[in-house]
Structures are given as structure tokens and as C-alpha cells.
Design a protein around this nucleic acid. Structure first.
Lengths: 118, 118
DNA sequence: CGGTATCCTGGCTGATACTG
DNA sequence: CAGTATCAGCCAGGATACCG
């Protein structure tokens, strides 16, 4: 645990990927149920198409999400959380809920800090 | 949680701060015991002095860390985790441990993905 | 519909030097 | 010892346009 060389720290190697701007948002959605590309786009309106593609690809690469193409016309693609993804999301969701519940406390701490600084 | 305007999403407002490159590393250290500035520096050798100062200040601002100055000569400063910090670290540490334990699985998923891409 | 391909910018980050 | 100040580079992320 200590003496960590951050360069090849296994924890960081995993965390950095899910710490992106959109990863947790998408994991949270896909934890509920599978979604298609366009659905995710509508669900997170302010993500750019480029970042949606890229983030999904990263999540897929790390094994959290599975991508299934249906050769319909027009083509449709479904993203679905894997077992590894679920096992990650279990502890992760607790942090997310902590963030939600303690947001007021954090905002208060910031306000207090900023005030005493001026 | 829903009603997704990511711009002022309370979850990300909290997460973004602890998702920084060094935050989790410092929280992990300070969860063990209080440390002085120089000690943290030696503990995380590849952090720059600038980023150590800045990250500690951010953690302090959000209420996770308390900073205590001892007017000795030369001055010494101690950083200590707050109760809010501990309450965050409890779920957070589970994610970190998950990352540690599942690093092999993630690496394997990446290898498999990269192979099938070429 | 579900992507790629480019171009571009703001902010994070590191390196270095100075200070109470 | 524990910072601040300043400059410079890089890259995540946004905007836009095009494609099977």
C-alpha cells in the first residue's frame, strides 16, 4: 500500500479509467438496464457523440460493458453491463450515493473555507 | 440522480475533486494517520511540490482534511483527516480495494479487446 | 442509426525558481 | 520546512463535418 510508485500503481490503472467525466454516469445508467447508443445520448444530453463513443469503448475495453450489434435496418447497437462491471458498480455505487448524500456538507465546507480566506 | 443535467450534478461536483491524479493516494495515506507536508512528499515521491500543496488545499477546502500549523521554528504543518473525510473514505476504500483485486481481470479484458481489434 | 475523422482550445500538470 | 510564483506542454474533451 505504501511506497507506491504511482507510475505503475495497479489501483490508479483501474481508477483513472472510471474517473473520466462521463464514465460513472454511463455505468449508473447501464447498471439499470441495457441501452442503445441513441438512448444513452438522450439520457445524457450534454455529452458529445465523440465522447459517448469513446467512453463506451473504454468501458468495453476494460471489460465493464458488452457491446452487441444487431444487423437490423438501420443498424442498432446495444450496450449491456457485464458481471465484472456489476461487481465494480457495487462498491462504486456506494461512493456515488455518499457523494449525493453529503453534497450539502461538502458545499458547506467549501463556503466556510472560502470565507475564511477572502 | 436522474434529471441529468451534468452541469450541476451534485454527484460529479463531489466526485470530480477526489478523482484527481493524487487525491486518492493522499486520502489513503491520511486515513492511516496524520502526516506532515514533508512526510507526504517523501511518501509519494513523484508528486511535485506544487501539486501536493494544491491537492491538499482542495481536500481541505472540501472538508476532508484539516490543516494545523505549529508555529515552531522552522514552521511545521500537520494534515489530518476529518470525520467527513473518514466517512467518505469508508466506501471509497472499498472501490480502491476492488481495483487492486480486480486489476488482473481488467488487464485480461484489455488484452482480449486489443487482440480482437488489431 | 451509430458511428469516424479532424481540428482546436482550456485547464491540468510538471519544472524551475524564489520566500517567510 | 512549507510553501508561492511563473512559465510552458500536453491531452481530455468539445465542435463540426462526413460515412456505411
Amino acid at each position: 500500500m505504501s511506497g507506491w510508485d504511482a507510475g505503475n500503481c495497479p489501483v490508479r490503472d483501474v481508477i483513472d479509467r472510471i474517473a473520466g467525466k462521463w464514465s460513472t454516469l454511463l455505468l449508473e445508467a447501464l447498471a439499470r438496464r441495457p441501452y442503445r447508443f441513441g438512448e444513452l445520448r438522450r439520457l445524457v444530453p450534454d455529452i458529445s457523440q465523440r465522447m459517448l463513443t469513446q467512453t463506451l469503448r473504454d468501458l468495453q475495453r476494460d471489460g465493464y460493458v458488452d457491446r452487441q450489434v444487431f444487423p437490423t435496418k438501420p443498424p442498432s447497437v446495444e450496450y449491456r453491463m457485464t458481471e465484472l462491471g456489476r461487481s465494480l458498480f457495487e462498491p462504486l455505487s456506494k461512493v456515488l450515493r455518499w457523494a449525493e448524500e453529503n453534497h450539502p456538507a461538502v458545499k458547506a465546507a467549501r463556503a466556510k473555507f472560502d470565507e475564511s480566506e477572502v
